[in-house]
Amino acid sequence: MNSAIRRSMYMIGATTLVLLLGFSSTQPAATLDPGQPNSYLEQGELLLAQAEGREETRRARQILAMGAVLAHRTGQDDIAASCCIALVDGQDDPALISQAWDLALMLDPSRLAAWAQQRNMAHATDSSALGAECLRLARNAEVGDASALYQRATVRQAIRDAALRLGLPVQDVTRVIDGLLTTTGRDECRGRVFSTQVHDGESVRVLCDDHTHPIATTGDVESLRMLLAIELECLESSTGLEDWASAWSMHQQRPFEAPSIEQLIELYQIDPARPYLVNGQWSSTR
């Protein structure tokens, strides 16, 4: 009898535990209502706070992004702005942080004070600065030091990101850098432009002949311009370009746009025509 009671108690306890676990992994599908964008804000915030992995984080951000889009389309821009701000939580990409805050301000101008305080447009990280230095060293024939930096994945990523922001083809950038870092191995001047030779007992400085193009250049103007533009972008120095000609020559000619709610659709890969989350999949019906 006692064992039976014990067994029943175990069963009840296990069942209760399972139920509790079921509740704790909150199923948002039943509570997401496109007619109530606030439901997306609440659920998204909750899930983002509880998220433990990339997938859960991604799903939580999708819910928030969906809420922003649905709220904007029904004229509830204050909720849309709140969803955008909620997207910032846990975000470490400065570009995405600033985009979210910018969107929030444009949707709801009353967020100005918070925007001014929280927004941070900084792209420059240690990796960005190292990326710029890597390119400078490569141009100046300091192959060893440049190669050492270029081998770091974060440095390569920083260079790639800068190239993408400028709209430059990454493969062309890579080709130029690889060309600069590939040498015959001889460099008598060790990157110092002049080497010393002895003629008739006298030391004479001569230009080093071990380079295919003058040191500090890249061999052609276009690739030089490209690398300088990436260095500028890595160091966030574009704001120092005062002339329009300078900006244009440094590949600052890409279209300049205000952030829009439609960017969230593309960024978070959501479809407003499928606002329901059913069994982990977005659907057009409950």
Binding site: S237, D243, A245, S246, A247, W248, M250
Partner: peptide, 23 residues
Amino acid sequence: RRLLLVRMSDSLGRSQQPQFNQL
């Protein structure tokens, strides 16, 4: 570094895109 990069951009721009500065 930053100052030099900006100056280099100015130099390239003036040389290669003079009409922009005119504009």
